[in-house]
């Protein structure tokens, strides 16, 4: 599948910029503005890459290494994630686990770099990020486990098995799983209602607070990585929703449509909903756990007592 591979290289390279572009466009539309170009984030990326960097006196070399490691880890996650056309670059057993642990490695690097600066804002952001994304983890694994139960396979292809039977029960499971991934997307991507990327008060920030001391190319890499991660999670939702027997061209088109819809959804939520109070964020994340639990119970009942 050379055409898939070529297309997906383009998806990984430019998809994150477009994903962010769509979010920003949607937000501008709600605000009654014309909004930036769809590829504005790409232009910003290029601009940042040309700049120099200012780093704190306090940091050790870990600080400048971290954005590269974080991006590399997200890149490996992209390698195992099914993208356009429904296939991953590398289809591998246990892909869920590798995916989650690559995200963890990426997070580990960014948390370490945030703490390097000795800034209390960044400590605050790092602590929140670690807590909230920590609660996502079991829900993600529960969702993954359900997919394995339904499909009998441990690779990401398992995700498309919810809709394999084509009946209403299968679609119910698929939509629950997609909803779980959307909550994961806003939590991992630090978007409203978990975190507001537009906020200008350090005390209320999560992801933005962690990168207060990053600048120039490092900042460019960090932004790209954050958008890439959101795109990858949206790709999981797409994999759930697109039936496995769809033709290649249609499947690619649906992939684009679903990820764009995910971005649009993020943009709409961001325009219409206020950020949650920090103390209520865990409850929101536990919502994903509940969905995952319901998903598992439903799938369990369906598989034990009647086919899905």
């Amino acid at each position: 599948m050379i055409k898939s591979a070529v297309l997906n290289i383009l998806v990984v390279l430019f998809g994150p910029f477009i994903f962010a572009g769509i979010i920003n466009r949607i937000k501008a539309m709600w605000a009654g503005r014309k909004g930036p170009k769809i590829l504005q984030t790409l232009y910003d990326f290029i601009k940042y890459m040309k700049k120099g960097e200012v780093i704190s006196f306090t940091v050790s070399p870990v600080f400048s290494l971290a954005p590269v490691v974080s991006l590399g880890a997200a890149g490996v996650a992209a390698l195992v994630t099914p993208l356009a056309g429904g296939s991953a670059f590398v289809s591998i057993e246990g892909a869920f686990i590798i995916f989650a642990y690559m995200f963890a490695l990426s997070k580990f690097a960014m948390l370490a770099s945030a703490m390097e600066t000795g800034s209390s804002f960044e400590g605050m952001g790092a602590a929140r990020e670690a807590t909230f994304t920590g609660f996502v983890e079991p829900a993600f694994f529960m969702t993954a486990g359900t997919a394995m139960l339904v499909s009998g396979s441990g690779s990401f292809d398992a995700l498309s098995s919810f809709t394999a039977s084509g009946d209403a029960r299968g679609w119910l499971l698929a939509s629950l799983a997609a909803a779980a991934f959307m909550i994961m997307l806003v939590t991992e991507g630090s978007r409203v209602p978990v975190d507001d990327p537009n906020t200008h008060l350090e005390l209320t920030m999560i992801h933005e607070a962690m990168v207060l001391d990053n600048s120039g190319p490092a900042m460019a890499l960090i932004t790209y990585t954050a958008n890439l991660k959101m795109l990858l999670i949206a790709a999981l939702a797409a994999k759930v929703l697109i039936p496995a027997n769809t033709g290649w061209l249609l499947s690619c088109a649906l992939f684009m449509a679903v990820t764009a819809a995910a971005a649009a959804a993020v943009g709409c939520v961001e325009s219409l909903v206020a950020r949650l109070r920090m103390t209520h964020v865990p409850q929101f994340v536990f919502f994903m756990s509940s969905i995952a639990l319901i998903l598992f119970c439903a799938a369990f009942i369906f598989t034990m007592w009647g086919a899905v």
């Binding site: 120099g52 780093i55 704190s56 006196f57 490691v69 991006l71 600066t117 800034s119 804002f121 190319p217």
Partner: peptide, 21 residues
């Protein structure tokens, strides 16, 4: 990538105190 970034940024890196609002 880390090596390349380091060598490219060598002369373009300034330092300052950590941002404290």
């Amino acid at each position: 990538a880390a090596l390349i970034k380091n060598s490219l940024m060598k002369n373009k890196t300034g330092s300052a105190a950590t941002w404290g609002c």
